[in-house]
Computed example of a mutant assay.
Amino acid sequence: MWPLIARLKGEWFPATLPESSMKSLNGYKEMDFITSSRYSFSLEKASTLDSPKPIASTHWQKFQMMALKNPKKLKRENEVFIKESIQLWMACAGYLFFSLISIIAIPLMFPQLIWYFVLTAYLLAPSLSFCNAYEAGLTDMNMAYNYGKAELFVMAALAGKSDELVAGMVACGLIKLIVSVSADLMHDFMIGHLRLTSPRSILVAQAIGTTIGCVVAPLTFFLFYKASDVGNPAGW
């Protein structure tokens, strides 16, 4: 499809733009990947519902077949990665736990965003995260900002004229962060697979880093805030 679209340079998009521009051929590529990722997500869900076997056992059989056809190094990588994988119930429980915290805390901080708006965002986030991780694996580009912009318009329309600005911006940031982290985590899992690091170790390291960041980032902000004359146009 892309060679056919490339022939329409000058008609469908300006011929003077570089191919890497989102207003050029690259924009059509991204839309194609977004569409294919949604199709892949729907296909994966359908195959999971139709399959009588758990998805974990199916993936384990695939890795076993791959290990038989590849060198010992790849077999070792697959064994380590699968042996200490994250259980599905743990992932679901963690997602529900943090979703509940967000549903309670975010409306308290931003009253314009009603609790069921946050619930809607968390219900949409898993499918969008899958699509973004799929696209990032194909294109090496994180499209979380595009998903956040789409959520901005949806939540702004639901919130009404008086609260649309704050509700849309907060929902945009919420979706963008969730979707962006999913793509980053998949990259980390890929590197962990190559470096013989288990998913559990990666997740624990991510949790430790996030905890440290939650402490260090506010302290750093207040350090600069107290040391500098923030908001003064005549100085800093």
Results as ranks from 00 to 15, higher is better:
A150S: 13
L223W: 12
L194D: 04
L88F: 08
A93R: 15
F130M: 07
I5A: 04
G231F: 05
R7K: 15
M190A: 04
S228K: 11
C214N: 05
L17R: 02
G27Q: 02
C92V: 09
A46K: 15
A217M: 14
S37K: 01
I34R: 06
P18A: 06
W60D: 12
S99E: 01
K83T: 09
L165N: 08
A156H: 00
F33H: 13
S21Q: 08
D188N: 07
I212W: 01
A205N: 10
I34T: 04
L124F: 14
R195D: 08
D188I: 03
S182A: 15
Y116T: 13
A133H: 03
L219C: 11
A67K: 10
A67D: 12
S24Y: 04
F63V: 14
E164D: 05
I175Q: 06
Y145G: 07
L17S: 07
K72N: 04
A156K: 03
A15F: 00
V216L: 11
A167M: 03
D229S: 15
L8P: 01
S51G: 01
L119C: 11
A156I: 06
P14Q: 08
S201Q: 12
Y39N: 06
V154E: 02
W12N: 02
T210Q: 08
W2Q: 05
I175R: 07
H193I: 00
A67G: 14
Y145L: 11
K176A: 11
F98R: 10
L113Y: 02
A227V: 09
M169W: 02
A150N: 06
K73D: 07
P107G: 04
P199N: 08
K75T: 12
I34D: 03
K73C: 01
A150K: 04
L49A: 14
G209T: 08
G168A: 05
S162F: 04
W115Y: 14
I5M: 09
G213E: 08
N132P: 07
F41E: 02
L223D: 08
I5H: 01
V179G: 05
F153H: 13
A157R: 03
D229Q: 12
P71H: 11
G27F: 07
M109K: 08
V204R: 13
D32S: 09
F189D: 00
V154M: 11
Y145H: 12
T48E: 10
E30C: 07
K226M: 05
L17N: 05
K62N: 10
Y145T: 14
N142R: 04
F13K: 02
K72I: 11
G213T: 09
T210A: 15
R76F: 07
